[in-house]
Amino acid sequence: MATYQIGVLNGDGIGPEIVQATVEVIAAAAEFAGTTTFDFVSLPMGWEGIEKHGEPIPAITKEKLLECHGWIMGPHDSSAYPPEQKEKRNPSGELRHTFDLYANIRPSKTMPGIKSVVGEADLVIFRENTEGFYPDRNMYAGLGEYMITPDIAVVNGVFTRKAAERIAHAAFRMAMQRKRKVTIVHKANVIRLGYGLFLDTCREVARQYPEVQVDDYHIDAMAAHLVRRAKDFDVIVTTNMFGDILSDLAGELVGSLGLAPSINTNDRQAMAQAAHGSAPDIAGKNIANPVGEMLSMVMLLDWLASRHQDQELHRIARLVEQSIMTTIEEGICTRDLGGDATTTEFTAAIIKRIGSGGK
């Protein structure tokens, strides 16, 4: 029986509610399968980290994460942190930077029982996670933005061949397991050097995957194409900011950003993290939707299964995924999806279906 150590970072706002709901569901699935155990290790993050250690991501958390097979991260409310903390990277950016989690993988897929505004769609966005126009992540030290005068702000965008190559390879490897189609999204017609380097490097990588069909779009055109014909896309690879924007758009188009999962990985470590925010306005009310976080953990299980050649993890992931889908299809869901179930009621319904094999 294999045991996997999973770091648990509850986060802020609705984070503790949806992360704990996810832990309960995964634990129930592991118990049902009877072949795998998870050692969940709670670590301070966000307000908990600030109150106990003076940092949103204290050193002890980073040290313990190195010992974990993977970890699940709740959303953070960094906009509400004390002024001295706002000057630093937010918890998500800090972990992505510290562990060089270069690939943010965000699928968007229509679900039974959830209304989609674009019909059927099943795509996955590979977002480069370490540079571009996100100044908290693209510098070795310091932040890449400056106030030249009180009325002039300058932001540096960083584009490297190394970063483009590795995110492109990750996207093309995924495409080989899917429909063998990759779409590159950029703005090389205007930001010719930065996005030109990204586009050219992705095309160079594409030549190593001759079985994969490749096309590319400018970001503004791509946003329109997603709205009009999301079903035509399979794997999308793009830069940090564009990937952030497009994945939020795609999540809403197929049903709700509250359903949108993601993982962040560097090929050796991975972090499950829902794409949505901390929703402090509904925190503690037991009405938050945990699906995005749960499906992020499903992605982490699949990632661990591939990394450790453990088919039991794939089976546990499918059991959790099927139980979530069955529950939603039967009309049991939280208020944001048109239902009346509380977070705990929804979680209990999923666990009940896990106990019957996902049916």
Rank of each mutant, 00 (worst) to 15 (best):
A170L: 05
L123S: 02
M299C: 12
G49E: 00
I287V: 06
A80G: 10
F99I: 07
K162C: 01
Q269E: 09
A30G: 08
T36S: 13
K115Q: 07
E63N: 03
L313H: 00
A283Q: 11
G157F: 01
H53D: 08
E67M: 12
C202L: 07
A349W: 07
S296V: 02
K62L: 02
P210V: 02
Y140M: 15
M241T: 11
T183Y: 04
G113P: 00
I219R: 02
Q20A: 13
G284L: 07
Y209C: 08
T343W: 04
M271D: 03
A279I: 01
R161Q: 08
R207N: 12
A28T: 12
N189Q: 13
G74F: 00
M111V: 12
P44C: 03
H186C: 04
P280L: 00
G157V: 00
A260T: 05
I114L: 01
L199F: 03
L300S: 06
N289H: 10
L259A: 12
G54W: 07
S323T: 13
H169S: 05
I191V: 09
P135K: 12
G194L: 00
E204A: 15
M73I: 10
M299T: 03
V158A: 01
V182A: 01
P82C: 09
T265E: 13
P82G: 05
T130A: 14
D122T: 01
P58T: 08
A153P: 10
G70I: 07
L301Y: 07
R229W: 04
R307A: 08
P107K: 03
